[in-house]
């Protein structure tokens, strides 16, 4: 799928090239892109044709469905806005859960990271929580808050906040002591050290962890719907599955995947901007 590493290397070559070379380079790169996309589209076309051909001939339709069936089902679900309202429901749970998780995770990470003594005490507990499959606690969350949207939000929050906490905590703990000393020598207050040093220093890590955390929050929201729901894409997939409607399951999965990819590309764009600003896009 998508690569996490910024493509600074290729950009650097085109930046340093002379104008004439630059033109050649650009043309080459465009051609390269065209080739790449031609191959990708070819793969999709071949895959879908094979699928369409095999469906009903080699494998039973109710197991593998078929591209046309998926499109058909997509049209059906779109009519009356069911698909969109389910998408909205899931994204609402995921979005709120993710936001709360990011807030709690980064705040705790900063606080615990700043106070070294706290860090030393909690380190083993943090390691334990890191290894716990948090999603298994969803039944407990049902006990706490019931089965409404709140439950899905909680499951999403609870699944995704740890990875954010862990990253921000580590970034904060390992802050450059020399920078910290310099801040204190310049007469910075605790608050100024927090906002002027710790926050910017942790930003890179925060963004990286947000990108990792978002799909986790999404899984949380969907699992929440699996546990109990009458709405949402998770429910749609589960419901379709129970009616042996493979196409319906696939429509739900594809919808959620595409949405997640769009959101990831936005996060990645932000991350790349910040990485440049943070001095990681080294030039020359």
């Amino acid at each position: 799928m998508t690569t996490v590493a910024p493509k600074s290397a290729s950009r650097a070559t085109s930046d340093t090239a002379t104008p004439v070379d630059g033109q050649d380079h650009r043309r080459e790169r465009v051609l390269d892109q065209v080739r790449l996309w031609a191959i990708r589209i070819a793969i999709v076309v071949v895959f879908c044709s094979t699928w369409q051909f095999a469906s009903g001939r080699i494998f039973p339709v109710f197991i593998v469905s078929s591209p046309t069936l998926v499109l058909e089902r997509f049209g059906e679900f779109m009519q009356g806005g069911k698909l969109l309202s389910d998408l909205a429901y899931t994204m609402q749970a995921c979005g709120i859960g993710f936001a709360i998780g990011a807030l709690i995770g980064s705040t705790l990470g900063l606080l615990f990271g700043i106070y070294e003594s706290v860090s030393r005490v909690i380190a083993p507990f943090a390691a334990m929580l890191y290894s716990t499959p948090k999603i298994m606690l969803s039944p407990l969350i049902v006990v706490w808050v019931g089965v409404d949207l709140t439950m899905k939000v909680f499951v999403a929050t609870f699944s995704c906040m740890w990875v954010i906490f862990y990253n921000v905590w580590n970034a904060t703990r390992h802050i450059d002591r020399n920078l910290l000393d310099q801040f204190r020598l310049m007469g910075a207050s605790q608050r100024q050290i927090l906002t002027g040093l710790y926050l910017p220093a942790a930003t890179t890590w925060l963004l990286t962890s947000l990108r990792v955390a978002f799909p986790i929050a999404l899984i949380g929201a969907v699992v929440g719907e699996f546990v109990a729901s009458s709405e949402g894409l998770g429910h749609l997939a589960l419901d379709s599955g129970q009616r042996y409607d493979s196409a319906g399951v696939l429509v739900a999965v594809l919808t959620i995947t595409l949405t997640a990819m769009i959101i990831d590309s936005v996060l990645r764009a932000i991350q790349r901007k910040v990485a440049l600003w943070q001095g990681e896009g080294v030039r020359g």
Binding site: L179, P200, Q278, G279
Partner: peptide, 18 residues
């Protein structure tokens, strides 16, 4: 505690990259 009115150019560079 930390002294007041000190300007310290440390051996290690301490510029903020951002």
């Amino acid at each position: 505690k930390l002294h007041q009115g000190i300007g310290y150019v440390t051996q290690r560079e301490t510029l903020l990259p951002w």
